[in-house]
Write a protein that binds this DNA or RNA. Structure first.
Length: 489
RNA sequence: CGGAGCGUGGCGUAGUCCGGCAGCGCACCUGAAUGGGGUUCAGGGGGUCGCGAGUUCAAAUCUCGCCGCUCCGACCA
């Protein structure tokens, strides 16, 4: 294994894979397209999950768990929904193996299932089949359920975290008495996602509405948070859907309102996935490896003791103890690296893993009552008084969190363009990349032509769009919407 | 599913044309020194050369068949 990572400027895709594997976030699983999330990567996901789970619970949502297996017939209940997922479903057809002729195992043909079972690509259908049983009256609404689960989509081309055959996510499924309330729910969750991305992942996002072509199969409206990666491509980081009465109709889910009349319920669904881990990597990483935002970093501080003999080891251990106790009281996540490796090796290793702060403590420091503190984001090195460490660290962690966010905002601003003409639009997409903010005539035809000619797609329709006097970048017709175009993951 | 390529210790590879003891780097283990930016020296372990047939005194190498993977074209959080 070589020492560093492929530089971003040389090959961004190779850089990404290098960082993910060398920082030990994940590894490839044995089945094509599958991924093992390693402890360090899972810890990162856990912190993201914990933050969002709390936000959801604070807003009245509850967790539950629905089955992995779905009757094949359920998927066909909602026409658009089948259309969207049929091509990527794993199907269980048999339930038994038997000894094969050459000592291996073969599928037992006698165990063929009467009705085949699919592995969920998403859970709308099972959940709505259950909601039919649980919802009778307006008193049962709203129903605000979330589940943390794995789902399977048999993808052709996969990349660690960004697109894998199986992935982890949360999917919220809510039922409401009115359309207005359901629409509000989709927007409220979108706001939670924005806060998760910006306040925890330090990743600025645009929020907005998806075009017809890009929206979720089965939804009336899809909203999204969309981020710009360091290679200037767009990444959809989360979606919320207003489903109208589509699933209520498909599964015949009705309730009696206050006037004793039967009505179909209104629905939403929404999700973010382990793709967020990939988003963090591609938003903040540099040629030294990861740079993790302190609020979600598995370790916020790594301590590198520098000692040459047992006496020094003892001295450093004693010297460190009150500092570690103090940080522990402040709930700072600290790891002391006592491995028998050279300090230089450890510096590089933890930089690859993106730990926000490094504290070096050696014999010189013990003697002088000091320590060396180094920021991962700027590499600024400071010799600090021992007694100041405990007060300094939380402050620095906040600064790093903010600094990473600011850098990402600046990067996005620098690469967000306007285009005066379609010729300029094509030139920007082909030669510079980034986001282009422009007018669109609202037709799927225009959207598809632009996609085919440039590979750029509409990432979202801006919520604060200004269309007065605006023309479509392609057709020149009066714009129906102001949108962001970009090449996307 | 169409086009190109590749399968050799954990990873990356040389050797394949022209058959003759399976080699190198990293990683790993042991010991010693070293330790404030990827430390050095010494010793060591680990291989059905993707699988199966065939040719041959002899196959990683030649022939045939099979399997798997990667990359590129139509889909997607």
């Amino acid at each position: 294994m070589s020492k560093g990572v492929t530089p971003q400027s040389e090959n961004y895709a190779a850089w990404y894979t290098d960082v993910v594997t060398k920082a030990r976030l994940a590894d490839y699983g044995p089945v094509k397209g599958t991924m093992v999330i390693r402890p360090y990567g899972f810890s990162l996901w856990d912190n993201i999950k914990e933050a969002l789970d709390k936000m959801l619970k604070d807003t009245g949502h509850v967790n539950a768990y629905f089955p992995l297996f779905i009757p094949k017939s359920y998927l066909s209940r909602e026409a658009d929904h089948v259309e969207g997922f049929a091509k990527e479903c794993a199907v269980v057809t048999h339930t038994r193996l038997m000894a094969g002729p050459d000592g291996g195992v073969v599928v037992d043909p006698a165990s063929k299932l009467e009705e085949e079972v699919i592995v969920r690509p998403t859970s709308e259908t099972v959940i709505w089949a259950m909601y039919k049983k649980w919802i009778q009256s307006y008193r049962d609404l709203p129903l605000l359920i979330n589940q943390w689960a794995n789902v399977v989509r048999w993808e052709m081309r996969t990349r660690l975290f960004l697109r894998t055959t199986e992935f982890l996510w949360q999917e919220g499924h809510t039922a409401h008495a009115t359309a207005a309330e359901a629409k509000q729910e989709a927007l409220s969750i979108l706001e939670l996602y924005r806060r998760l991305a910006e306040d925890y992942l330090a990743m600025p996002v645009l929020t907005g509405l998806k075009s017809e072509a890009e929206k979720f199969a089965g939804a009336e409206h899809t909203y999204c948070i969309e981020a710009m990666m360091k290679d200037k491509r767009a990444l959809q980081a989360g979606t919320t859907h207003y489903l109208g009465q589509n699933f209520a109709k498909a599964f015949n889910v009705t309730f009696q309102n206050k006037d004793n009349r039967e009505e179909l319920v209104y629905a939403t669904s929404w999700g973010v996935s382990t793709r967020l881990v990939g988003a963090v990597v591609m938003t903040h990483g540099d040629d030294k490896g990861l740079r993790l935002p302190p609020r979600i970093a598995p370790f916020q501080v790594v301590v590198i003791p520098i000692t040459r003999n047992v006496e020094q080891k003892k001295a450093v251990t004693d010297y460190l103890q009150p500092v570690l106790d103090g940080l522990d009281k402040l709930n700072v996540r600290v790891h002391v690296d006592w491995r028998d490796e050279s300090p230089g090796f450890k510096f590089n290793d933890w930089e690859m893993k993106g730990v926000p702060l490094r504290l070096e403590v050696g014999p010189r420091d013990v003697e002088n009552g000091k320590a060396v503190l180094v920021r991962r984001d700027t590499f600024v090195k400071a010799i600090v008084e021992k007694d100041a460490i405990i007060h300094l660290i939380p402050k620095l962690l906040d600064e790093i969190q903010q600094s990473l966010f600011d850098q990402a905002v600046a990067h996005r601003a620098e690469h967000t363009h306007t285009a005066a003409s379609y010729a300029e639009f094509k030139d920007i997409i082909a030669n510079q990349g980034g986001f282009i903010r422009c007018g669109w005539d609202g037709t799927t035809e225009t959207e598809m032509l632009i996609k085919n000619e440039t590979k750029a797609t509409i990432r979202l329709i801006l919520p604060d769009e200004q269309i007065a006097g605006l023309k479509c970048i392609y057709s020149g017709q009066p714009a129906r919407h102001e949108v962001i175009f970009a090449k996307a993951y």
